[in-house]
Nucleic acid binder design. Structure first.
Lengths: 346, 346
DNA sequence: TTGTAAGCGTTATCAC
DNA sequence: GTGATAACGCTTACAA
């Protein structure tokens, strides 16, 4: 009884009409007049049978599955400390739900994503794709472009004609470092969020360098370190920075996640933040305000980034041809307690 | 050209065989002998055409979609600070991938989850369901039980015959609080991870009380506070605890997320951890080791919880009828720097 | 060994 | 206004 699902046939039978009528009524097809009585009977029958159309059958005939793919390009062992993902999810669900869509989430290794998510597209498992994370040159992406598959990138990526939604990483980093400079710091180290193969990392580093240059501070290559998305890398690179004994009084860490690790490295070595070393982050994750000390950082509107991306994608899926209408969101500096004056150098 | 997907018909034509043969070869159907030459030709044709079977068509005929649903019962504004979710995801993907499955993620409001995820089941969008989070009494869950739909709960839930995978929350909390007692603390406060309507919260509180009782420490209702999953609630309840001036020297916070907030509340009020107040958490999230001070906590094997749950679910989906074979994983105390001796009471 | 034909549950096109 | 009928792309008895 519960075992056998009701089909539109069953509904039709119960309502005493044909399957066509059931479909027309339930999908609210315009331009066809169904008598209110019949309409009512069908709706009633559908409800009493607990009828829900079979998604596969609908997909087969309509060509659309009403599922969006969220592809996270991440090393799988990174995801558990990547709070970014959570904000994307939170930003996505409202839009997803209000459009009666579903979300398939998958993770692909940034190094060999070949085919990985293309398979979803080829099997017609998704109608559109949201790509997040450090995507470098990628053949699969090229394929998406070629077949003109609805795709939006959350973040950025070198040379592509695909839509993206992002912040201006360079400008954001510039803001952060300028804040440090204004506080009087002249020896400012930098720990990137990721290796230099990732555009976001490069852009943030560029913002750092530009801020330095615009304030007549010489760029010291020895003061920059490359992180790799993890808290651990923030800890490790900060420790290395301290050990090398190059004098500096502040650090721009291009990710709050790494800043958490950096903060621990500093304090475990007996230095105080911000008295000895000023620390500025990037992202403004929920935990930033609760770090000890509360982290000064650049606020990224990640949830909005995600929902804007999703809405853009939906337009694309509806066939609107907005070629490459990218969206760049603004960022704000959030000043808390991790930055002090730059009159002392360790 | 790229526009039109190849169908099994196309492959058959190119290989000079029938669609049946294509299906048999590509699905590696046993018991049917196909000449190696033919087999090779089919495979070759499929590759050269970039043929991937249409998932909807396969689903329609096979009755299975090869998709698992991960349902997160959360208030949407909680998810961005719920690092738990990330660990679940990380734990899931390996199993998902190696079984050629996909994952639909959805979030439902714990208060009215009616129908929300049942719709996925009814529309046959998923073959099995993984439920995480604070699930209270729930009609939809009853429905799943009735139709015997493959379901595994990550966590626990009152009165259900559904499978679950969890830790012994009570025992884990007992371990944490006993650690505090052994350190000499006798005035131990408690902040739960969630309101008392959630089983995990109640179990952890019970462990706390039991540890107290077993060590002849009187239970003080005024020393317990209820959190609500968020960092903010940890901060708020800790602040309230301090304000009330009830003497205590240690706090058991039944969630690392809340412990982060609690830690900030303590330090912002000029108290030191652990010199003035000892703090012990629950979960051992990746960030716990990097808190200032590094947080002593109970390690929950969340990734394993997730992968075990997934494997159990796969068995269920394969029709193995292991009725209610629950799995309870062990937890370990992780001693770091947030607990000191209990000889002082604030 | 390979091919033919039926059917999965919808939606959509037309006559009626 | 409503109801047959044909797709959609695949798997699988069954026949050759």
């Amino acid at each position: 009884m519960s075992a056998k699902r009701a089909t539109s046939q069953d509904v039709a039978r119960l309502a005493g009409v044909s399957r066509t009528t059931v479909s027309v009524v339930l999908n609210n097809v315009q331009g066809i007049n169904i008598s209110p009585a019949t309409r009512q009977r069908v709706i009633e029958a559908a409800r009493s049978l607990g009828y829900v159309p079979d998604a596969a059958a609908q997909a087969l005939v309509s060509g659309r599955v009403r599922i969006i793919g969220l592809i996270l390009a991440r090393y799988s062992y990174h995801i558990s400390s990547d709070a970014f993902i959570l904000q994307i999810l939170e930003g996505l669900f409202d839009t997803i739900h209000s459009n009666d869509l579903r979300l398939i989430v998958d993770i692909v290794n940034p190094e060999h994503q070949e085919q990985a998510y293309l398979q979803l597209v080829r099997a017609k498992r998704i109608d559109g794709i949201l790509l997040s994370g450090p995507l470098v040159d990628d053949r699969a992406l090229k394929a998406l472009e070629e077949i003109n598959f609805p795709t939006v990138i959350v973040g950025q990526i070198a040379k592509t004609t695909l839509c993206y939604v992002d912040v201006d990483n360079c400008a954001a980093a510039y803001k952060a470092v300028t804040h440090l400079v204004r506080l009087g710091h002249t020896r400012i180290a930098c720990i990137t969020n990721a290796p230099p193969s990732y555009t976001a990392a490069v852009d943030r580093l560029r913002g750092y360098q530009q801020a330095l240059a615009d304030h007549q501070i010489a760029f010291e290559p020895t003061l920059v370190r490359y992180g790799d998305f993890t808290i651990e890398s923030g800890y490790r690179e900060m420790a290395s920075l301290i050990e090398k004994q190059w004098p500096f009084s502040a650090v721009f860490v291009a990710s709050d996640t790494l800043a958490l690790g950096a903060n621990a490295a500093i304090q475990e070595r007996g230095y105080k933040v911000p008295a000895d070393i000023s620390l500025i982050g990037f992202d403004d994750l929920p935990m930033a305000r609760f770090m000890e000390p509360a982290l000064t950082t650049v606020h990224l509107p990640i949830k909005r980034l995600a929902s804007e991306a999703c809405e853009l994608l939906i337009k694309l899926m509806n066939g609107e041809n907005l070629n490459c209408s990218n969206i760049i969101l603004d960022v704000d500096l959030v000043i808390r307690d991790s930055c002090g004056s730059g009159d002392k150098v360790i």
